[in-house]
């Protein structure tokens, strides 16, 4: 079991979710976040004052997947989120120790899907 965290451009979320659906990955948690990497984002301007170089709006996806789905998930996220420009984001893959379905008390791989 792996826990996959992806930080992507907000406007690519729909495409990433579409790609995941195509690969039978339906479960995901999504949140609005701020982040910063090496890229420069779209600077906002307020009364001619440029708000640049600070944190940029990003979207974070978190998915728990069984081992068979790890490669497909990574590929799907990459395909959906990629523009080729700096700022496309990153994917982090972590080992997942346990997963419990609250309703049934089921544990492990069976509880993920």
């Amino acid at each position: 079991m792996k826990y996959i965290i992806a930080v992507i451009q907000p406007e690519k979320l729909d495409e990433v979710l579409d790609e995941l659906t195509k690969n039978d990955v339906h479960l995901a948690t999504v949140s609005n976040i701020m982040g910063r990497g090496v890229q420069k984002g779209i600077a906002e301007v307020y009364r001619s004052h440029k708000e640049a170089g600070s944190l940029l709006k990003k979207v974070k996806l978190e998915l728990a997947v069984n081992d068979d789905f790890v490669d497909a998930t990574i590929e799907a996220i990459s395909k959906g989120a990629k523009t080729g420009a700096i700022g496309d984001g990153k994917i982090f893959v972590l080992n997942l120790e346990e997963c419990v379905r609250i309703r049934t008390g089921e544990k492990g791989s069976g509880a993920i899907g």
């Binding site: 406007e11 729909d14 976040i33 600077a43 906002e44 709006k57």
Partner: peptide, 21 residues
């Protein structure tokens, strides 16, 4: 399409209605 996905506030006006933090 890119501008539409980003949203017009940012792509056409360089402003956001809301901050995240």
């Amino acid at each position: 399409t890119e501008e539409e996905l980003i949203g017009l506030d940012l792509s056409d006006h360089r402003e956001s209605a809301y901050t995240v933090l």
